[in-house]
């Protein structure tokens, strides 16, 4: 923990929820930063857990930020069209901004 900000790193495959992060969300009150630099794969269960985590963070009025997201993982977030994950990355959703095919 640095300056009341909690940091945690995802190691390897994110194929299920991470209890440690769930606990950090409950116990702390400052921003939560999740570092994806060592994340090698995100499974469907991992995606669903991240989306749920963002919902719980919203309810708890905690801000969650994803940092150091490798392009492969960032693309998974993009394709998934989950708005909250893009917000956590500091970006915009890929599907909401598009109004259809353009030339």
């Amino acid at each position: 923990m640095i300056n009341n900000e909690m940091r945690v790193r995802i190691l390897g495959q994110l194929d299920r929820g991470v209890d440690e992060i769930d606990k950090m969300l409950i116990s702390g009150d400052g921003p939560l930063e999740i570092d994806f630099s060592a994340c090698t794969f995100v499974a469907v269960d991992g995606l669903e857990w991240l989306e749920e985590l963002m919902l719980r963070a919203d309810s708890a009025k905690r801000s969650v930020h994803f940092v150091n997201v490798p392009p492969v993982i960032y693309k998974v977030f993009k394709i998934s069209h989950i708005e909250s994950l893009m917000r956590a990355c500091g970006g915009v959703s890929s599907n909401k901004s598009s109004k259809g095919p353009v030339c």
Binding site: E48, V72, K75, V76, F77, K78, S80, H81
Partner: peptide
Amino acid sequence: RQARLAAAVFSQ
């Protein structure tokens, strides 16, 4: 939704 998430994951 489940198809979308699977497609996202499949990209890896």
